[in-house]
Amino acid sequence: MKAAVFYDREDIRYEERPIPQIGENEILLKMKICGVCGTDIHKVVDRIVPPNTVLGHEVSGEIVQVGKNVTQFEEGDRVFVAHHVPCFTCHYCNRGNYSLCTQFKATNLDPGGFSEYIRVSAVHVKHTMGKLPSAMSFETGAFVEPVACCLHGFESIALNPGDTVFIMGAGQIGCIQIQLAKYFLADRVIVSDINPFRLNKSLEFGADYIINSKNEHVRDRIMEITDGQGADVVIISAGVNHLLTEAMECVGKGGTILVFAPFKRDLVPLRADRFFQDEIKLVGSYSSNPYNYDKALQLLKMGVVEADKMITHRFHLSQLNEAIQCAHSTKENVLKVLIKS
């Protein structure tokens, strides 16, 4: 089989690999679609994974072989699958913090989603795999994992109907979050970015106001839109450290800031007095958990998240290097990039 293998920032090789052998409780999946995630881009551009790594985790595909003990799936089933599984029994799992579980990050698909065939382990089969509705395309099915991640983030912010939500970053995740915020009955959704194409796309997904942070003063615009009150919820969906400082200036009294992007390990100045005086809450959200997938699938099925409208580019597996460069480019009119085998 073929796989797109990371070696360096601009060195992703389309290589021949042996088809994985499965055990009696496992499944062999033929990858049909794998989405390019912001974390895939981060791992490639910043070289934070070792050479000889196969990335990719937003996977949909068709089952081509099942282990003899697998009863809930069969050959030919169209499915989605996600890449991390918690143990459900450790300190963190018992507190509902599944993505902090040691096993969570240790588990993965074999190899990653940017390969023609994937061995799906027994714990993945049990906890992160699900059948796609007959009318749902593989492309839409590949959105289950990122929508689940966004749902996990929304679990942390206690969004109330009528709230004003400010999303910093109009990329693929930001546009999913716009649609979810509207679904959860946010009154106003404000989106900032420096990319005019993405800002205009955010309007298509329900944003009420857009702010070009390259040309406009973000705090002033937020206060103008909210009559000086600030946003009830601020979601940081771009991995730019200074956005945290900016978010503290834009969140209203009693509001919540959700960090939904990987930051570098730098010190960031914050208005520390606001935590006490204004009862500001600052929370983080990493990945998803197995309890998010069914809801994500249903929201896609209902059209709450319009996956088809988000796709701007499609590349063959052999073109992953070009796909990463496209997704990372500030010049391309790009939102969601998909890889097909």
Rank of each mutant, 00 (worst) to 15 (best):
V36E: 06
L203I: 13
F104Q: 07
F138Q: 03
L132Q: 01
Q325W: 00
F104H: 05
F205H: 10
M129G: 06
H217D: 15
L297A: 02
D77N: 12
I22Q: 01
S288E: 10
D227L: 08
H316V: 08
I22R: 05
E15D: 04
S156R: 14
G206W: 02
L28S: 01
D308N: 14
S137R: 12
G162C: 03
L100C: 14
T245R: 14
G303R: 10
Y293T: 10
M248Q: 09
R314Q: 08
I222Q: 11
I176E: 05
I311T: 10
G162E: 12
I33K: 06
V45C: 02
Y209K: 05
E58R: 02
I257E: 07
Q298E: 11
K281P: 01
L300V: 10
A207K: 10
L28K: 06
A296N: 07
G252K: 00
S202V: 07
A327W: 01
M223L: 15
T164V: 15
N160W: 14
V191N: 12
C326G: 00
I41F: 07
A158M: 12
F205I: 04
E116P: 03
I33G: 03
H124W: 13
F276C: 03
L297H: 01
I157L: 13
S285G: 05
H152D: 04
P50L: 11
S213W: 01
K264G: 15
